[in-house]
């Protein structure tokens, strides 16, 4: 559905996106992760034809966005972190205005979408009277008009309270399940991404450092959680033995290639270290993400 081929974007001296290649297959809920300034919004801007790539090509539904904008974006809806509307106009007028930049849309379709997002009864009120949650629903309604196959959500949970975030999560799941939409979700809320996405990509400083199924990401870590009496001494010992390549957070060890848990435990016990717990828990997405974007501390500095 979305394909980025060796896409780069430079703003003056700063390289915001660096040779990014990405594929979002149809039917996926795809998570785009990264710190602020990692290049997520720039990448989304290029997908929507708002930011011109310095190099590379962006395809949506097989059409190159720069050259065939109309075909590429005709079945795309988007929501941004702070959806902007004409506050002095009603929600209905806003929907009509935005959707008619895509195609003429009958009132019945507008009403259907207003119903779907739960804004019925308030659609004729000026948007300035809407709560934050209502604005989020209106943003969703405009994205669903006239009838997208791909939904691009750029930080949609930003500024929402926990209840709003939960509502957003359920809505995204509904969109995927009931309407069969392909969804690209860019978010800082890793727990949300973990619950929603089937596939993720992680950007750092404009480069992609991971792309794959969420399940693969979560089983990707070669980290071992240990609870020992003296963690720094254990790190020194295991490093000298060549069993680990890094450590972090006073409890996590990065196992060297081919090293199993048994060898680590044996080494520690043989050298008299007090071992209280050892587990190779599946890391959460947050742990996986942090392990990717943080470089492992050198063993000597680990505490």
């Amino acid at each position: 559905m979305i394909e980025l081929r060796q896409v780069s974007k430079r703003f003056g001296q700063r390289l915001a996106v660096n040779e990014l290649s990405l594929r979002v297959p149809a039917g996926e809920v795809f998570g785009l992760l990264g710190h602020n300034g990692a290049g997520k919004s720039t990448a989304i801007g290029m997908m929507l034809g708002q930011v011109w790539p310095t190099a590379g090509e962006v395809f949506i539904g097989g059409a190159e966005v720069g050259r065939e904008r109309r075909r590429a974006l005709s079945k795309v809806g988007a929501i941004f972190e702070t959806p902007a509307f004409y506050d002095y106009l009603s929600g209905w007028d806003n929907l009509r205005i935005f959707t008619q930049y895509s195609a003429p849309t009958p009132a019945a379709r507008l009403r259907e979408v207003v119903d779907w997002v739960g804004l019925t009864g308030r659609e004729t009120s000026p948007v300035r009277t809407y709560s934050h949650g209502m604005r989020a629903r209106l943003a969703l309604a405009q994205a669903l008009l006239p009838g997208p196959e791909l939904l691009i959500l750029d930080e949609p949970g930003e500024g929402l309270d926990p209840e709003g975030i939960a509502e957003m999560r359920h809505t995204i799941l509904r969109l995927h399940r009931e309407l069969g939409l392909t969804i690209l979700l860019s978010s800082h809320l890793l727990t949300e991404v973990e619950q929603l996405c089937t596939r993720i990509a992680v950007l750092q400083e404009g480069r992609k450092i991971f792309e794959g199924p969420l399940a693969e990401a979560k089983s990707n870590g070669n980290w071992l959680r240990v609870e020992v009496g003296d963690f720094p001494a254990a790190v020194t010992l295991l490093t000298q033995a060549g069993l680990i390549t890094g450590a972090r957070d006073g409890r996590w060890l990065a196992l060297a290639t081919g090293v199993g848990v048994d060898r680590v435990v044996r080494c520690l016990v043989e050298h008299g270290a007090a071992v209280f717990a050892v587990s190779r828990e599946q890391p959460t997405l947050e742990e996986f993400y942090l392990s990717l974007v943080r470089k492992p501390e050198p063993p000597a500095a680990a505490t």
Binding site: Q50, R70, L73, F80, P83, A84, Y101, S102
Partner: peptide
């Protein structure tokens, strides 16, 4: 400035036409 231009430009309208 208000951000509505970004909302418009995720639609398939050509910039010249807009």
């Amino acid at each position: 400035e208000d951000g509505t231009l970004r909302m418009i430009l995720c639609r398939p309208i050509a910039r010249s036409r807009l």
